[in-house]
Amino acid sequence: MAKARGRVIFEEDLCKGCGLCVSVCPTKIISLDNSTINAKGYHPAIVIEMDKCIGCANCAMMCPDVVITVERY
């Protein structure tokens, strides 16, 4: 069976850097970008290895600011 693949899109400037998405990602691909400060003054959540995303939407379930869109293909 083909492995479920997904893609997450973060609206980085709306992220408050709380890290709840980081804590629930089963593939551990989300991190807070300590080299960036977004428009709100926080280190936003980013995904570097997007090809490992399975599109489970756990991150979106926990995001208090609803900045995440999840696609699956």
Binding site: G6, L14, K16, G17, C18, G19, L20, K40, Y42, G55, A57, A60, M61, M62, C63, P64, D65, V66, I68, T69, V70, E71, R72
Partner: peptide
């Protein structure tokens, strides 16, 4: 698209502290 922001919320950014579960 398996998850996107609901139409039940406006586009206003909330004033809640980071990580506050009010947002959820």
């Amino acid at each position: 698209v398996v998850f996107e922001k609901t139409k039940g919320l406006t586009d206003v950014q909330t004033h809640y502290c980071p990580g506050c579960t009010h947002g959820i």
